[in-house]
């Protein structure tokens, strides 16, 4: 990767979005795996039973392998920019999830949620500008 001098370059930004997409899918697989265990009341007492039932399904392992990929991608991102930049920029996942639920699930996004998306975009714009100032 090119030295970015801490800037939120298009390459770094794309990497962050990639980790967001991969994480969304991983969580989907985990949720499915957790429900498939048929253990309604998970606590500390039956936790290992719960875990072993999760591990017997494929969804759990797909989720884990997504997490492994994400781990390396995220460290690569962090080697280039500040955590206080990388982390809030990762909130694009909220926009991705909203868009995916409109396109694939036909869900409605409320005006309040659109406002929220606008706020997130504005926030990332400011954060990205804060890195340009720093690099100058």
């Amino acid at each position: 990767m090119q030295r970015t001098k801490g800037r939120l370059t298009p390459v770094v930004f794309t990497l962050i979005i990639m980790t967001d997409i991969i994480e969304s899918f991983a969580e989907l697989f985990f949720k499915k795996a957790a429900m498939a265990t048929n253990i309604p009341d998970v606590g500390f007492s039956n936790f290992f039973d719960f875990l072993s039932r999760m591990a017997s399904g494929s969804g759990f392992w797909i989720g884990i392998s997504f997490y492994v990929i994400n781990f390396f991608l995220w460290i690569a991102v962090l080697s280039q920019i500040d955590l206080s930049v990388a982390f809030p920029t990762g909130s694009t996942s909220y926009i991705i999830v909203a868009l995916l639920s409109i396109i694939f699930l036909g869900e409605q996004v409320s005006p309040a949620q659109w406002t929220g998306i606008l706020f997130i975009i504005t926030g990332i714009f400011f954060i990205s500008r804060s890195t340009q100032k720093e690099a100058e």
């Binding site: 930049v85 909130s91 909220y94 926030g123 990332i124 954060i127 804060s130």
Partner: peptide, 16 residues
């Protein structure tokens, strides 16, 4: 700018 941006993001997430 960074602090303001983060606050915008937080507010946005709560709304979404």
């Amino acid at each position: 700018e960074r602090i303001m941006g983060t606050l915008f993001v937080v507010l946005g997430i709560v709304l979404v």
